[in-house]
Computed example of a mutant assay.
Amino acid sequence: MAKIHPLADVQTEKIGESTSVWQYCVILKNAEIGEGCNINCQVFIENDVKIGDNVTIKPGVQIWDGVTLEDNVFIGPNVTFTNDLMPRSKVYPEVFAKTLVKKGASIGANATIIAGNTIGENAMIGAGSVVTKDVPANEIWMGNPAKFYKKIN
């Protein structure tokens, strides 16, 4: 059974066993969250979001429609995802861009992930980086814009 803090607003029923959702989280009704996840306080998860098993999401993260986090992903504090490349107030795209964070990837604190990109398996994104293009598996990327730093063994 999932552990949901009484001060969280969890509208979805699709939450796996042993997942913890802490206070002041909002999770909308169509979101899907796997088993063994730890969703820290002050996290917002929109409807068209899929989160795998054993994912850690630190405080201050918003996960918008179109974002998928595969198994064993780490999302650091205040990571920012986008899903609209040309945002305007009250003007919505027909389809939001899709962002995929593959198995075992880690994203450092305050990084920004621009919509429509894929972060490969076991990749690492340095704190404060801005990801503007796909990141291959088993690589560390850092900076603004994020660039290749080194391979992970």
Rank of each mutant, 00 (worst) to 15 (best):
Lys3Glu: 15
Lys3Val: 05
Ile4Val: 12
Val10Gly: 08
Gln11Ile: 07
Glu13His: 12
Lys14Arg: 11
Thr19Gln: 14
Thr19Met: 07
Tyr24Asp: 11
Cys25Gly: 05
Val26Pro: 07
Leu28Thr: 01
Asn30Phe: 03
Asn30Lys: 13
Ala31Lys: 00
Ile33His: 02
Gly36His: 12
Cys37Met: 10
Asn38Cys: 11
Ile39Pro: 00
Ile39Glu: 10
Ile39Asn: 03
Gly52Pro: 09
Val55Asp: 02
Thr56Met: 06
Pro59Tyr: 10
Gln62Ile: 14
Trp64Phe: 13
Asp65Lys: 00
Val67Arg: 00
Glu70Arg: 15
Phe74Ala: 02
Phe81Asp: 15
Thr82Pro: 04
Thr82Arg: 06
Lys90Ser: 09
Lys90Leu: 14
Tyr92Thr: 08
Val95Cys: 12
Phe96Thr: 05
Ser106Asn: 06
Asn110Pro: 07
Ile113Val: 15
Ile113Asn: 07
Ile114Val: 14
Ala115Thr: 04
Thr118Gly: 11
Ile119Ala: 00
Gly120Lys: 09
Gly120Leu: 08
Asn122Ala: 13
Gly126Ala: 09
Asp134Asn: 15
Ala137Met: 05
Ala137Asp: 11
Asn138Lys: 11
Glu139Trp: 06
Met142Pro: 10
Asn144Thr: 09
Asn144Met: 05
Ala146Asp: 01
Tyr149Asn: 13
Lys150Thr: 01
Lys150Trp: 04
Ile152Phe: 08
Asn153Pro: 12
